[in-house]
Design a protein around this nucleic acid. Sequence first.
DNA 1: TACGGAATCA
DNA 2: TGATTCCGTA
Length: 356
Amino acid sequence: MHCGCVAEGAPAVPGSSWISGMAFPDWAYKAESSPGSRQIQLWHFILELLQKEEFHHVIAWQQGEYGEFVIKDPDEVARLWGRRKCKPQMNYDKLSRALRYYYNKRILHKTKGKRFTYKFNFSKLIVIHHPLWEVRAPPSPHLLLGAPALFRPALVPMGMPSELLHSMLFARRVGQETPRGLPEAAEDKKGSGGSAPRLGSLLAPCQLGPCCLLGSPQDELPGLAAFTPPLLPALPSDWTRLSGPFLPPVPLEQPFPGAPKPDPLFPGPGCPPVTHHFSGLPLLAGLGPGAGERLRLLSLRPQWLEVKPDPLMGAKGHPSPRDGFSSDIHGPKTGDKHPASPHLENCRAVWPLDPP
DNA sequence: TACGGAATCA
DNA sequence: TGATTCCGTA
């Protein structure tokens, strides 16, 4: 599908739920799952709408419920989605069918009893796509999403509260801009393939594909490979044990030379053909209220590292087998053979695809 | 309103 | 693979 679509500037609305500093990983655009196609996925589109203040009248986060959102105007959301996908016949019935497919994937679930209300399972979104992160890059806590060590499954038990992970994801509210970029990974169902998605793939001029971005100033990012984060002091190898802020201070928004200007939000009527080359840097959504503040509380030894019984997990903190991977909790492999470097271009993360 | 099967498409 | 479309059922 090709659309001559577009992005528009992000709402620079103070106090809005917009949280930048968050990047969607490549798998959000099914680069690996659908070779040759990098169309936006519905759940991501939903996130995009949610992060935009101007769409809060049609869809918005449910106050007090992390990851839960309400479609206030189903028809309008469907219309927007149809517009994005150049499917003028789209309606809520069809859109909701697509949403229901996310139930099985546990990306989303329905909030029973609440009309047009769904809830994201952020831990699934992030973790299930990265079941065996093996990072060949130094742990870089200042690169929240570029710090796979923080998100390797071993550190993110499936029982980890979604809202906590959610909080971790939206780092900007900590008050610091963080170079963004979430490592790519294969779809959870793709076990083989041998592809090794890497951090640092370049963004194309159209980051989400013209069709795929609502846009924001933060969207004006070059590829990670082209982005050199500010130099930061090397961390001690046992930084994960340290207490203190979850993220070291990082200078605010870096200028990104050559970054494309945001485009209009949606494709024109003709939906002209466009080649999509998004490689993983659109911004991840907004979030529920208070998450940013919660993030402040995160330390380098987050509470969830302490194994707690979880309804979804066994008493030992293991997830049910259907979660597909071990939840063994151990610290990040620091040190390894890779010299620490604050430069993203040195942060080539390679992880195997999902286990069978 | 919500769910999910089935066929189909790109 | 991720929808899209249609439809029967609850």
